[in-house]
Design a protein around this nucleic acid. Structure first.
Length: 120
DNA sequence: CGGGTGACTCGAC
DNA sequence: CGTCGAGCCACCC
């Protein structure tokens, strides 16, 4: 069977498009992205999308996506384990022990900040 | 086609 | 409080 890589699927593209809309200096979570896309349990799939984000031709700021408590669980998927942290700190987000400091006020919830109708 | 996996999350205990 | 286990869904072998 011809099961080609489906990382160009519409769902993945929506994930990438949304991630690109995250303002610099702000972060969001996999679950928040999934919920915004109408898939409350799709957090792991968003993680999958991030896994392929590296191969997208257009830049995807995957470092602005962390898990729901603000931990850099995906840092090992960057070039070096410090790359993600440094990208964040270059935007003014401070990271201590893989945790985003002041995560609550840095959190960017697409459901609140973005118009769903405009996105789709 | 079935089984394994993960950059997640939520609810029990 | 914290730790643990079970869903969850797309992708890969």
């Amino acid at each position: 069977m011809n099961r080609k890589k489906n990382n160009q699927s519409e769902y993945f593209q929506m994930v990438y498009r949304l991630v690109r809309m995250i303002p610099p200096g702000r972060v969001t979570s996999y679950g928040a992205i999934a919920r915004f896309l109408g898939d409350p349990r799709g957090a792991r799939v968003v993680g999958w999308a991030m896994n392929d984000a590296h191969y997208q031709s257009e830049y995807v700021p995957a470092h602005r996506v962390v898990n729901r408590v603000g931990m850099l669980t995906g840092k090992h998927h960057f070039g070096s384990s410090e790359a993600m942290k440094e990208l964040l700190e270059s935007e003014g987000i401070y990271v201590l022990n893989d945790c985003i400091q002041d995560f609550k006020s840095r959190f960017w919830d697409p459901l609140k900040e973005l118009d769903q109708d405009a996105f789709f």
